[in-house]
Design a protein around this nucleic acid. Structure first.
Length: 218
DNA sequence: TGCCAGGCCCTCTTTAGGGCCTT
């Protein structure tokens, strides 16, 4: 990766939509820098009301566990400091971004960092994977895993390994010296079919083979 | 009462529909 740090995060929630009143019940996050995990953040959060049986089953997080968890606001205040100054990454980032922004708004805070989506990048880096869910990619690429799924920190760690793996893959396949965060953000927005040409052009520019020796404007 | 997410991506597409992905 380039000379940047990123916080890879994952929320467990009461449902799919903060606009429908859903709240977060667990956050897991890892700070990655220089191709390794440097720090971790994890906490359950009490949403103030019972979660459904489906969520208890899906996450393994029970209402009794949440009853003794700290309030959401208390945890989010701490997470604001953890994520400060770092790019943000999540798998299907639109989901986590909506919940993060909704919870930050409740404590009168605002997100200032860019978000990047490992799902959108994976669809372009691994177009032939049998699926692009986090679990499918972990299996397909044999990424490090504790075997735990649908818990925030475990999912954040697997997403971090996926992210670092994709950076390594791009470096290797396109002989890139650096894979800046902005390049991955751009890649996620490029039409999927155009991704190979986009990456080849970027690699050529980075090697000064495109009539310029300047670094690509990413 | 009944509603009940949002966005990407493909295709039997663009005056649309449905699968995938997140909980």
């Amino acid at each position: 990766m380039g000379n940047y740090s990123a916080v890879v995060l994952d929320f467990e929630t009461t449902g799919l939509s903060p606009d429908s009143g859903d709240r977060v019940i667990e956050i897991g996050a890892v700070l990655i820098r220089d191709n390794r995990i440097e720090d971790r953040f994890q906490s359950l959060m009490n949403p103030g009301r019972p979660v459904s049986g489906f969520i208890e089953e899906y996450t393994g997080i029970s209402n009794s566990m949440l009853a003794t968890a700290p309030p959401i606001a208390t945890v989010m205040e701490k997470f604001v400091h953890f994520m400060a100054g770092h790019h943000l990454v999540a798998h299907n980032a639109g989901f986590d971004r909506r919940f993060l922004d909704a919870e930050l708004q409740r404590i009168s805070q605002r997100r200032r960092q860019d978000f990047a989506c490992s799902l959108l990048v994976a669809r372009r880096v691994y177009p032939d994977a049998p699926g692009h869910s986090l679990a499918a990619l972990v299996r397909h690429k044999r990424l490090p895993t504790s075997g735990v799924h649908h818990r925030a920190l475990a999912d954040a760690e697997m997403t971090a390994h996926l992210w670092l793996g994709m950076i390594a893959e791009l470096k290797s396949a396109f002989h890139l010296r650096q894979v800046p965060f902005a390049l991955l953000q751009q890649l996620a927005r490029v039409p999927k079919k155009a991704a190979p040409v986009f990456l080849q052009r970027h690699a050529a520019a980075q090697h000064g083979e495109a009539g310029t020796t300047a670094a690509p404007a990413v």
